[in-house]
Structure formats: structure tokens, C-alpha cells
Computed example of a mutant assay.
Amino acid sequence: MESMEKIKIGIFVLFVVIISFSLMFMYIEGWTLLQAIYFSVATISTVGYGDFYPTSELGQLLTILFIVFGVSTGLYTLGAFAESFIGGYFKRYNRRIKMKKRIEMLENHYIVCGYGRIGRVVIDRLRESGLDYVAIDNNSEILQAEFEKDPNFNYIVGDATHDEYLIDAQIDRAKALISTVSTDSDNVYITLSSKRLNPKLYVVSKADEQVAMDKLLIAGADKVVSPYMIGGLRVAELAMKPGILDFVSTFMSIAKYEYDEDLEIRKILIGKNSKIRGKTLTESQIRYNSGVTIIGIKKENDLLVNPGPEIILEYNDQIYAFGTGEQLDVLESMV
């Protein structure tokens, strides 16, 4: 039984006991209702002022029964209160200690600065992908409410423009930082701070204004995203090419919900020791070994769309591949 249910039952039973015995004391001792309730409350609380007490034997016997039932009910209710408030406090405290230890052990995780509308979407996506993350935000109520729903939710209450909170989020061991705070100036500051603390960190930042996009790139952001620009382009594409986008969306949905296949497009970088380095697309046998479709290859400043089989794969080339998550994982192991 939940603690609140125990408290409700205890209060109800305590009320019934006090009223019932008070009415009996009125009848036996000839007291008024107020005097009877006063005596009952003083007795059950173990205060016992002594200004009212039963004089008849029946009243004294009734008092004994009242003490047994009343004090027992009072202790039960008090215990329920203690379990709810004291026990609940220590439970939340232990969960926060465990969360802090989890954060201290994180590696190759994602730091999300700002838990607003965009930050929530980002963390939901990270959760779905099974990736570790830490959310940093000033609003403790929102973070704690999310923590109550999900004990595995990792968060730090604080201003992400201050280095101490980034350090607490283990920025030196993080894989990437995503800045989605409300103002462009704060996103620029967070980008500068994070790159100073970890120059190798991959930083993606949100920008509301066009001028902020250039400033964020200068500050060190690897990628800058403008939600308004992306949203506007999406609306325009839906208006101009509804059939194409509907087909892609429908195709992805069918794969997900009817065949349980997560289709995606992934960018994969060819390293120095890659097995396919120096080979053509035909020689690499990417399609045969992994099943993915290569839709593009970026070579320095050139982007080859739908590359031919004679294209040679070289160090630092970026492959854009389309397929299921499992197929893409195979391709990454090959590369």
C-alpha cells in the first residue's frame, strides 16, 4: 500500500475513533461535546492536562479502551507520515547520489545544454538510441520532474555558460556537446567555453538569427542548426514537392512500424587503416558485404551524388550511406 493511502486511512480511522468515543464520554460523564472532544484529543496525544477526567467506573473503562485504540491509530498515522516524508526524502536523496556517480563514470557521452522544447527532443532521441547523456539547465523543477518519471535521467542544475557545470558533466571525456539554450549569445559563450575545456569535443549549436550562425562557427562550433530555417525549408518543400516527401515519409514509416526496420542515412569517415581505403566502390564490395546503398561521397570540398562504381575511396572521404541501423553498423566495422 502506498504511503499516502496509509495516511488517508489513518486520519479517517483516527477521526472516527475520536468522534465515537467523545459521544460515549458525553453520554456517560455528562460532558458537553466540546469537553468530550477536548478530553479525547488531550488523551490520545498523551498530553493529559488533568482538568477533565472520567469519574465513573464505566467512563474509566472506556478511557482504557480509548487509549488502546486511539494511541495505536495515532502511532499508525504518525508512522505513515514518517514513511511518506522522511522515507521519501532519503529515497530521492539516494537516487540523486546514484545519478551523480553515474555522471562521474560517463565516457563518450553527450552533453545537452538547455532542457527546453528542442533539448527535450534531442534527449528523447539520445534515449531511443541508447546513448549516454547529461542535461544542464537552470530550471530545477523541470529537471526534477523528469527525474521523478525516469530514474535514469542524468541532469545538472546550473548555468551552462559557467565552466564548473560543464566540468561536472565530465566535458573532458564527452563525445559531443549540443547547445540549445534560449539566446544566441549564450550559445556562443557555451561553444567558446566547451572548446576551451575540450578542443576535441564535437559541438552542435542552435542559432535563431542568421548572423549568429557565422559567430558560432567562428567560436568553434562544428555544426550550427537554425530551427526556423529548417522548419521554413521543410514547409516550402512540402508545398512544392508534397508527393516526394510523402513517399519518403511513408516509406520510412512502413519500414519502422510494419517491418520493425529503422532506416537512416549515416555519414561515415574513412580512416587511415580502413580496409576499403584505396579501392573503388566496386572493389570495396560495400553493397555485397553490408547491404547499404551509397548515396553520396564527400571528397574535400566536392560532393559526389550517386557516385559511380569507379570512384576510389580515399582517406578522409565521407561516405553517406542509406540502410538499416544493423547494415550501417556493418559498414562502419568495415570502414
Rank of each mutant, 00 (worst) to 15 (best):
253 S>E: 15
22 S>F: 03
1 M>W: 13
118 I>P: 06
239 A>P: 03
175 K>W: 10
122 V>C: 00
98 K>Q: 14
275 K>S: 14
209 E>N: 15
141 E>Q: 15
177 L>M: 02
3 S>Y: 11
132 D>R: 06
308 G>A: 07
95 R>C: 10
58 L>G: 04
61 L>V: 10
104 E>T: 01
265 I>L: 12
157 V>A: 03
107 E>R: 12
322 F>I: 08
214 D>F: 10
49 Y>Q: 15
232 G>T: 08
220 G>F: 07
151 P>Y: 04
29 E>K: 08
177 L>R: 00
154 N>F: 00
195 K>T: 02
57 E>V: 15
62 L>R: 02
70 G>E: 00
269 L>P: 04
286 I>Y: 02
149 K>W: 03
261 E>K: 13
173 R>V: 04
157 V>H: 04
279 K>G: 08
4 M>Q: 13
124 D>P: 04
28 I>H: 01
15 F>K: 09
180 T>S: 09
260 D>V: 11
277 R>C: 09
329 D>V: 09
264 E>F: 10
221 A>V: 01
321 A>G: 05
232 G>C: 05
186 D>M: 06
171 I>H: 00
202 Y>P: 01
315 Y>L: 12
20 S>G: 11
280 T>I: 01
188 V>D: 01
148 E>N: 10
228 Y>P: 06
333 S>Q: 13
21 F>D: 01
243 G>I: 12
14 L>R: 05
65 L>S: 14
78 L>D: 10
108 N>Q: 09
325 G>Q: 13
242 P>W: 05
49 Y>H: 15
35 Q>K: 14
297 I>F: 04
328 L>F: 00
124 D>G: 11
236 A>S: 09
164 E>F: 12
82 A>F: 15
191 T>M: 03
112 V>N: 00
284 S>H: 00
18 I>T: 04
107 E>H: 10
29 E>P: 07
71 V>S: 09
52 F>W: 07
157 V>G: 07
28 I>W: 04
103 I>Y: 01
231 G>H: 06
256 K>M: 09
266 R>H: 08
64 I>S: 10
